[in-house]
Each structure stands twice: as C-alpha cells, then as structure tokens.
Design a protein around this nucleic acid. Structure first.
Lengths: 415, 415
DNA sequence: CCGACTTCCTCCATGGCGTGAACTATCCTA
DNA sequence: TAGGATAGTTCACGCCATGGAGGAAGTCGG
C-alpha cells in the first residue's frame, strides 16, 4: 500500500516504517515475527522499527501470545489513543460527522438533517464545520491530537491542487470544498467521493478485505462503484474513475436524469425501479427521495405474488447482471461487493440471480475468478470511510513528523 | 514505472539504478542533470549510477551538448548493442518474429503465413520456435546476448506460475505457451495478450506517450483495449482486464460470436460491419477473415454516396461512441488512442464523429479531460510490443545481474 | 596564446540504513 | 532449580545517498 518511492536511505527508513505500520494497523494485533514475514523485513529491522514506533507512541504492546516452551511473543497494535480522526458524510438529506480513535472506535457523532436542495455550498460547509466543532467538544479530545478530517461528498471530486467537488445531484458546480472547509476549521482536510470512501471502508474492514482487486458496487438513488486495484482505490487521471451509473447499457434506451439515454442507472437505480413499477401498475408516481426507500422495499417485498413487481425486479436483475459483467470484463476483479441501501435490499434474496445474470454476460475466464458477495458495512460507513482518508495519509507517511526539507523536484514521472 | 519495492539499502541501489535507466531509455539521450531532475536523484548519485551503468555497458555517452561558456553536458543513451530482444506476434493468419537491438531498431524479421484454424498449439509453438531460430541466425547476433523473447498472443493470458493462453478465437484452451516455448528455445520467455503489447508499444513510442492514464482501443476482427494506469498496463487479478469487445452495450441486442447478446463487438467489429452491410443491401455474405479488410475498406470508401454504407457507418459511430464513453466514465483516462486496422480505416474520416458521439454519452467532467486521437503505430507494432516485455523486465531490474540470494518471503501483500 | 570565468562532473567524508551473528530475556518442562 | 526452547536486542559491518570541495573541460576577452 502506497510504497513511498524511496530514493535515499532516510526514505527507505520511512518506507519500512510505513510498511510495518500498515500491517499492524490492518491485521493487528501482530507479533514482531508476523510483521517481518508480511512486510518482508528482517527480525533485527522489525525490532528496531517497532522500538521507534513504540517510543513515538504510535503502536503499543498489548499482551503476550501464549508460548509453549519459550519466550512468549509480544502482540503489537496501533495505539488507539495516538490520535483521532473525523469522518464526514455529506449526504443528500443529512450530514453525519463522526469522530473516531485510531482503532476506529466511535467517540462522538453529530447528525444534522438538511436538505441539500435548499442549501447553498457555503451554508452546507458551515454546517459541516459546526458538526466538526460539535464532535470535538463532545468527545473531549484535544484538538491538537486530531490527525485530520476526511469528507465524503456526493458527486465527482477532482484534484489539481485542492479537491473540488462537482455534485450534479445536489447542484454543486466546482465547489472548492477543501479550501472552504480549511478556512473554517484548523485541521488537515481531505475530500473524496462518497462511493470511494465507502469502498475503502469495505476494503479495510468489510467484504473486500484481503483482496487486492475488487469492485464495490453501490446501488441507491445513484449507481456507482469504487474500484480497488493493487489494494488501492483506482482513481484515473482526475480521480473520477468508477462512474458506472451513466455508462450505456442500452443504446438509444430509456432516458436518464443525466440527459443521456440507456444509462445503467435508468434501469437499476432506485428511482427507475419505482417509476417503472408505477408505470406498470398505472399508479400515479411522484418521486420523492425520502419515500423512495420505502417504496422500493415494498416492491421487493411484494414481488413473490405481485406480477408487476416481479417483472420490475426481473428487469433489474437482467440489467444489473449485464452491468456487473461489464465490470468483470473490463477490470478483472477477484471480488465484486454489492452494497448501498438498494444493494442491501436486493441482495438479500436476489444476489444468486444477479450473479447468474452476470455469469451469462461475462466472459467465462474472468468470471470464473470472481466472487459476488454482499457488502458487510451499511450506508453509515460512508463517514467511516471518510475517516480512513487521514489514516491512510498517516500510515503512508509512517507516522513520522515530516522533516522540513525542500523537495528536490516534482514527483517522479516518465517522459 | 515499476518501483521495485525496496527494503534494504541494496534494493535502494537497484531501485535508483532502475529509475535512472528507465528515464534514459524512454526519453534519452539525456544529460546527467536531466536524469537527476526526472528521477529525483542528487547529482552525486546520478554520477555514481551512470558510472556503474557505463562500466556495465548498459548505457553509453553519445556526444556532448553545446555549451555556452562552460563544460559541455554529456549525452547519455541506452547502448543499443547491450543486448537484443525478440518480439513475436502470433496472429490469426501469420506469425511475425522480429529481432531488435535495445534501441528498438529492427535487425531481422521472419514471417510465416499460417492458418491458426488448422494448426494445433504444439505445431504453432514449434513454428514460432523456428522463427526465433531463424531471426537469430539471420541477424548474426550471439544467442547469449539475447535478453529474452516477448510473445504476443490472441486471447486471454492468465498467469499463476507461468503464462497460459486461452485463445477463444483460435480454439486454444488453456495452452501453456510459456513453458512449451521454453522447452524449445533456451531463452527467457514472456507471454502477453496482443492488445496489451500493442498498447505498451503505443505508450512507449506512439500516441500514448507521455501519458500516465490512457486507453488504447483496438478495432479489427475483435475489439479490445489496453488500459494504461499510472504509466503501466492495467492487468487486474488474473491479467485479463480490458476485455471490452464483449461488454454489453445493448441488453438483449444482436447476437455475438461469443454466444452473448448485445456485445459491443457485435456492432462495431469488422465482421459485424460487413454482415450488416450485406444485410442491408441484400447481398449474400460469406465471412472470410482474409477478405474482410477489403470489404470493410470498400464500405468505408463508398459511404459518401452509398445509402446502406453510410447507414452502417452511422451505426458504428453511435455504438463506438457509447462504448468509448463507457471507458471514459469508468477509467477516467486522459487520452484514448484509437488503433487496430479497422481503427485506422475508420479513424481517417470518422474520428471527429466518433469523438462527438462519445461526448454525447460520457459524463461532462471526465470527458472534458480526455483527448481522442488516432494510433501512431500500425498493426505490425504488435511484435514490437512483444519485444518491450523483456526490455521492461531488464529496466525494472536496473540491468543488474540478479544476485543469488533467497527471497525471504512471498511478495508484499496486505492482510 | 593566455588567463578569467563558467559549468559540469567526480571524489570524499559523513551520517543513515538493514543485516547476520552473538547475546540476552522469558517462558516451559522436568 | 537446571536445561531447553523461543523471542527479542545489540553490535559490528558493509552498503548507500549526499553535500561540499575540487578537478575537468569548455567559452570569452584581450
């Protein structure tokens, strides 16, 4: 994970520290020997690094492993009290701000119901800042021990210098969330797309754990993915990779809210399901994001007996299967995780059928190496995912206080 | 490019050697200063490394840069005579074997027309081996100075221990090309999918040069891609990523030779174009791979006046645009390169329309950062791409004779 | 032709690093 | 309580990149 391209012996040290630390964080508690094996470091080096890390308070020794005739192995873990992180979920109907320790135990939470439709970006950000101040106060944690804030937002996030959010669904056009928030709270701020943070949470703690090539599919109002490649979130050139919902699955097909035709989301998105059901039953349909979840749940529940409902779901299975097959063909993952509130609702009973539909549409070979599984974390893990952003930064830096030393040149790029 | 995850100071040396060498190879001739800037190394280190590399004969000093009042800068280049590589294109109708020096200058070529349909894998491989022996003999190069053979094959390539080829279009089922060929020629053998080798060639020397996130789209009988991510070929879990031709673009659509329905290839593949034209004109159509290229060229040429032809091409533009848009949404590249023989044929006149169709189907933001350009290398670059495989291996190893030292443990993986 | 100057490159002392081998710590068993 | 086993630490060693000093190789003006 994030091998910090080392060129000097000092970089090497940091790189090794980082490797050891990642291991302990993700699969701790671990013995020194485990670290050596997993991070490919000699016992002497591990001992040396661990001593440093313990001295810095980043990791702590928690108990001993039982021995059978020899000195017992010490168990090492990241020190939960080393620092704290804040994760923010900027949702379309509510803001969720959560403060965690480094063990990802929730220490404080702040929820504010809001309607993004009537909130301009400036107001939204100041609500977020209020939430941040609130969880800090409530948790009683010293502000200087907070490592950073990770903000998950709906919509595309691009980064030239700072993260800028383009939230089509909430009417945000090039909102520089990162710098705006930095002006309100004096903490490191990291911004990323909600699907990507949730995906990272599933990768670290959920159904994508232990996989280096996975795709987390998120179904809800919108339809998105988080692609994990080589153990890291795949971003592409401007960090907007994984936009699956508006890929064309039916040329010239149904109209989509994005203005296009035949987008996947126009067939398997929550709004599409409700609209299609209404169309079949002749019911008058008024889309309201708030009631959508109940409406879709009702359709799924009534499917066994209800002709229209089961027809709608058949269609969802078909299109979703084709869409997942496309992902399998293009990305060749070893696991596809189906999540999002709609994913959970469908997954319970329909996953085998979706899987079968994917098999029918995918190439045999890539499909044979993939497993399709339900997500393990709920929608509330978006904020947790946000909190992973500053943690990833910490771990990749090896939890070293950055030495003040001018970078020689820009980053490493070929031609 | 391939930062060899260093953990010891020796690894560090090799890593830095590798960085310098990659730079010189890809953007040489270069001065020592250039290397320092691009690879982020101090002048002293560059000097040191270069001295080593020159002593090993890997790079050579070629001329001096003009000075204006100071010692002139020496220009460094990879020594073309340091070693030789062989690239093999296992095509469906011919085998092409080419021997290059490290400057990628062609030194010898061997072509053998063959019909894969009537050739079993064992025979095919022995033809390839003959070709390899032939180019070695013809070039007069000492066998021990040959660094390796890179073989580009049609079909999927998976690698557990050794590369195994699954070539649906040529009827190959799990053929262990790597070990078979290794039994016949005493050289390092590397096997990869033809689209990926061509893509790597475009990335190193062609239209994808200088980009870290690109997609090379290959149109011909089949429809495939090579995805470049972070400057390297994206492979996925089992190295079969990028299978674009059989992604569904039209649920329940036209039948495809893969057995599925609505695959992209069934709309924009060469066979589909010819078949569709025949259907519209009522002509009897007999698909023959050999005549296909001419038939499609004729359709394209006659399009301005021919109603049926222009209708067929309109359709191709529409579907291809949607397909490319899907790639842009999912991978967020900064460049899409359109190649393959059909790509060249279409590209000449239709690229603007294809581009426009892609724009119409892609999300605004990712599309705004992408340029769609024609490929610069022809289909014969598949063998050249094969030759890049052993070169990549050489460069990533820093052209160091591998020290015989037991690896401590498996590779670096998280949890 | 010669010195002054400029720029590039190399050499060297220094501080860091990971490593194997020797050594110490800590437990179990008898 | 001694002996054995396993875990962890210390230390000398060899290797590395680096800044600074100094050598190399040109240009330019006289």
């Amino acid at each position: 994970m994030a091998a910090p391209n080392a060129t000097t012996v000092r970089d090497l040290r940091r790189s090794n520290r980082s490797r050891a630390l990642w291991q302990v964080f993700l699969s701790g508690p671990l013995t020194r020997q485990d670290i050596g094996v997993q991070a490919v470091l000699s016992p002497a080096t591990v001992s040396n690094l661990v001593a440093d890390l313990v001295a810095d308070g980043v990791i702590i020794e928690v108990g001993l492993e039982d021995s059978n005739g020899g000195r017992p192995r010490g168990l090492l873990q990241v020190n939960p009290e080393y620092g704290y992180v804040i994760g923010v979920d900027v949702g379309e109907t509510a803001f969720l701000v959560e403060l965690f320790d480094l063990g990802l135990r929730l220490r404080a939470r702040h929820v504010s119901a809001t309607d993004m439709a009537v909130l301009d970006p400036q107001d939204a950000i100041s609500h977020v800042a209020d939430g941040i101040r609130s969880v800090i106060a409530r948790s009683g944690v010293a502000e200087r021990s907070i490592l950073g804030v990770g903000v998950a937002v709906p919509g595309l996030v691009t980064r030239q210098q700072e993260a800028v959010v383009h939230g089509q669904s909430v009417g945000w056009e090039a909102v520089p969330v990162e710098s705006m928030l930095r002006g309100l709270v004096d903490l490191p701020v990291l911004v990323d797309n909600g699907a990507k943070t949730l995906g990272q949470a599933e990768k670290w703690f959920g159904a994508a754990r232990g996989t280096d090539d996975a795709i987390i599919v998120l179904l809800g109002m919108g339809v998105g993915t988080c692609v994990i490649s080589n153990g890291e979130v795949y971003r592409g050139a401007t960090s907007s990779a994984g936009e699956w919902g508006h890929t064309t699955i039916m040329v010239g097909g149904r109209r989509c809210r994005c203005g296009g035709r035949g987008c996947l989301e126009a067939y398997v998105g929550a709004a599409a399901i409700a609209a299609r059901y209404a169309e079949l039953t002749g019911a008058s349909y008024t889309a309201s994001p708030a009631s959508l979840e109940g409406a879709v749940a009702a359709i799924i529940a009534s499917a066994p007996g209800d002709q229209a409902a089961s027809e709608v779901l058949d269609e969802v299975v078909t299109y979703l299967g084709a869409g997942i097959a496309n992902l399998v063909n293009l990305f060749n993952p070893e696991r596809v995780v189906v999540g999002g509130w709609l994913g959970h609702a469908l997954g319970a009973g329909l996953l085998p059928r979706i899987s079968e539909a994917a098999r029918a549409n995918a190439l045999r070979l890539p499909f044979s190496g993939v497993e399709i599984v339900p997500a393990q974390l709920g929608q509330d893990a978006v904020a947790l995912g946000g909190a992973t952003l500053p943690i990833a930064k910490l771990l990749s830096a090896g939890a070293m206080t950055v030495p003040v030393r001018a970078e020689r040149r820009p980053a490493f790029t070929i031609s």
